[in-house]
Design a protein around this nucleic acid. Structure first.
Length: 723
DNA sequence: CCGGGCAACT
DNA sequence: AGTTGCC
């Protein structure tokens, strides 16, 4: 759906149905997972079932959860001078999205405004939704904070097998413009099952997170997205193949086609194309002249409702940024203060993420009269390893202090501070995020890694430019990134009694494929904040039990190397043992061990999230249960029970993690409890790491992104799928 | 007519 | 490094 994404060229112009599958198999079925098993069948299925989820007025919902009193009033979420979204009470009174605050207050003087510039809560809740969906299937792709695509082809397939015959041909929810008595049809049955899955997932999102939203069910992402919006709040709609042209023709203009933005629409208009139908009927040759063959083909396909782009699992974010806009900023002092402020929050977020950024970028927007008002410029530079390590190790203040001069230097590359200037925006960004996990040393032997009594971090070359990881070879290893951010040494700590647990402490990334970070290189162990890097290598792989969710029979069939990796405590041993070794190990082993454990907690309680939380129980009864490693599922405590239902309707989403002693917890001050809860709420999200480069190069010429990216996190799961 | 944030081309 | 697109 994203503008990019689809490079399937070899389609001719008269698609209709038959031709597209061939090209699809080519584009989607490559990559590391392609060689294997069932994963391929989902993405290459000639008739995929795709869901699109779209939360209702997302920011407003989050705020109404945080403050239930807001449910009864017209609520607008304000960013600067814009109402970015509003609840339905406000909509009834004429307030719309992206309306200016002045206009909104004119329409609705009683409008209650909540500031929404700080995205923290929205981002946290957004990832909780994605995580929840991921607990049902790995094929989840995020689009912004409030939308998710999901490929449920396999789930449907499984239900088809289970469901006796024609027992379920009925749809749940709406069916787009169902006019004719569409008899049977095998593809209708799949979509019908998809609608049931969609309903269950929406219900799960509602019961566990307290959020409502819409869903669309169709055979590709484009159509699923378009149809999901046809019945607006809190409903769902399925689109049958025979109604594709109906929904495409219903669009008021080309701009409404996802993938056709302002610029593209303008260029199309220059060709005399304004309606969707115009584009459908336009000759491909004309389009090719204007856009080139690939884009031309894609645009035309979009107009026809054809979209073979796969649901590409979104990984942990490839960059983290923080920005602020303003009317005017014209002194270096202001700039530095703003940069410091932005960096402070960004570094904190980066620390929670757990990965180490290799690149820093500063972006500004200069005021310009004639208004190019979208003229951003940026400069970037590598982040020296010792600074990066301060981020991951929790020495936030020092990291910020050291980054400020770097940022100012970049700033001066864009702005002559001697002359007058006028900025309207500053953005700071970390990218090239590197997991510092299991840098497995050469030969693919994991155990050899443990012979190095060194930090698992990347080797920093002597050069200022730090090549860092020479990821030659491209050998990939299955790694688990659930190491916790190092605790903040040098800070006061508080003890909190907990039980052992099951949750990755580093949010947003768990099991992934990634390139080796080091290749037998020696590590330097610096006396940084996390100087206590001793290892607990007492647990040889042989001593580990097979995770409970792994079928032993299947396991035996795995290549030895993979067996080892699955059992290896590599990541555990790669961490400073004082805070995670045990708990992470517990995670890996399916939470069997629930012995009480002490977890260090910083004064600010930030480290509490390291205390693994319990992962949630099984899927809903009817839903196929993918077998994930323990850390892969999202989840609640042992019992999903809600203690005191709050007026906010849901409190179940921030259950006390199973490892926390409720008695101790209840004695904490209320504000501390709330802080803890919010920390717990934003944990983990097992995503694959997008930054990893091409997996093993496929011999296929143009697998490019789609395959390379998506399948990584799932590559091993295929072995464990129920046959 | 633009908020904060992300990804994917060039 | 800039552009485009998406929310």
């Amino acid at each position: 759906m994203d503008n990019s994404g689809d490079e399937e060229e070899e389609k001719e112009e008269e698609e209709d149905d038959t031709e597209w599958k061939s090209s699809f198999a080519d584009t989607a079925a490559v990559g590391p997972a392609a060689a294997s098993g069932s994963f391929i069948s989902a993405t290459t299925h000639p008739h995929r079932v795709i869901l699109h989820f779209d939360l209702d007025c997302f920011y407003a919902q989050v705020e109404m959860i945080r403050n239930p009193a807001l449910r009864q009033v017209p609520l607008g979420i304000q960013q600067k001078y814009i109402i970015v979204t509003c609840n339905y009470v406000a909509r009834e009174r004429g307030v719309t999205k992206l309306m200016s605050v002045t206009d909104a207050l004119e329409k609705c003087p009683e409008l209650v405004l909540v500031r929404g510039e700080d995205l923290t809560h929205y981002r946290d809740m957004s990832y909780k939704v994605t995580e929840l969906l991921l607990s049902y299937s790995p094929l989840v792709e995020r689009l912004g904070f409030d939308e998710n695509f999901m490929d449920v082809t396999e789930m449907v397939e499984r239900r088809l097998g289970q469901t006796a015959e024609s027992s379920s041909l009925s749809f749940t929810g709406h069916v787009y413009s169902r006019i004719a008595a569409d008899v049977e049809a095998i593809d209708h049955q799949r979509l019908a099952l998809g609608s049931h899955i969609a309903a269950e997932l929406r219900e799960a999102i509602h019961s566990k997170l307290g959020l409502t939203g819409c869903a669309g069910i169709a055979n590709n992402k484009l159509l699923a997205k378009l149809v999901s919006g046809t019945h607006k709040p809190n409903q769902q709609t399925a689109l049958l193949p025979e109604n594709i042209s109906d929904i495409m023709d219903s669009l008021s203009g080309l701009r409404k086609v996802p993938g056709v933005g302002h610029q593209t629409a303008k260029r199309l208009q220059a060709l005399g194309l304004v309606a969707v139908k115009d584009l459908q009927l336009c000759s491909l040759r004309d389009l090719v002249r204007e856009f080139g063959s690939a884009t031309a083909q894609r645009l035309k396909n979009l107009a026809l409702g054809v979209d073979e782009s796969p649901v590409t699992p979104t990984g942990a974010p490839q960059s983290l940024s923080d920005e602020d806009s303003f009317k005017k900023m014209s002194s270096p002092k202001e700039v530095q203060e703003k940069i410091q402020q932005l960096l402070t929050s960004l570094v904190e977020r980066m620390h929670k993420d757990g990965r180490q950024p290799q690149t820093f970028r500063l972006t500004i927007r200069k005021y310009s009269v004639a208004n190019k008002w979208f003229n951003r410029e940026s400069r970037q530079c590598p982040i020296l390893n010792h600074i990066g390590q301060k981020i991951t190790s929790g020495c936030a203040a020092e990291a910020v202090d050291q980054l400020i001069p770097v940022a100012m230097k970049l700033f001066q590359k864009m702005v002559d501070v001697g002359a007058a200037f006028h900025l309207t925006l500053i953005n700071v960004c970390f990218s090239n995020l590197q997991s510092r996990t299991a840098a497995v040393s050469g030969k693919g032997s994991i155990t050899s890694f443990f012979t190095h009594s060194t930090s698992p971090r990347k080797t920093q070359s002597a050069l200022p430019q730090s090549q860092g990881s020479s990821s030659h070879g491209g050998s990939r290893h299955f790694t688990d990134h659930r190491f916790g951010p190092p605790s903040a040494d040098g800070q006061h700590k508080k003890k909190l009694t907990t039980k052992s647990s099951c949750s990755p402490e580093a949010p947003l990334h768990g099991l992934k494929w990634e390139e080796k970070l080091v290749d037998g290189e020696e590590e330097t162990l610096e006396a940084s904040c996390s100087s206590t890097c001793d290892f607990d290598d007492t647990n040889g792989p042989a001593l580990h039990q097979l995770p409970p969710n792994v079928d032993p029979e299947v396991f035996k069939l795995l290549p030895e190397e993979i067996q080892k990796e699955l059992l290896s405590p590599a990541y555990v041993n790669s961490l400073p043992s004082h805070f995670t070794a045990k708990s992470v190990s517990d995670v890996e082993h399916g939470c069997r061990n629930r012995a009480p454990q002490t977890v260090t907690l910083s004064a600010s309680f930030k480290d509490v999230k390291k205390a693994p939380s319990q992962l949630h129980p099984a899927d809903r009864g009817t839903t196929v249960n993918h077998r994930f490693p323990a850390g892969m599922s999202v989840a609640p405590g042992e019992h999903d029970s809600v203690e005191g239902t709050l007026p906010s309707s849901r409190s179940s989403d921030c259950e006390c993690p199973g490892n926390v002693d409720p008695g101790v917890f209840s004695e904490l001050p209320p504000d501390v409890q709330r802080e803890l809860m919010s920390e717990w709420k934003q944990q983990k999200l097992i995503l694959k790491t997008p930054q990893s480069k091409k997996p093993v190069r496929s011999s296929m010429s143009r697998d490019k992104k789609s395959a390379g990216r998506g399948s990584q996190a799932n590559s091993l799961f295929k072995y464990f799928k129920p046959s």
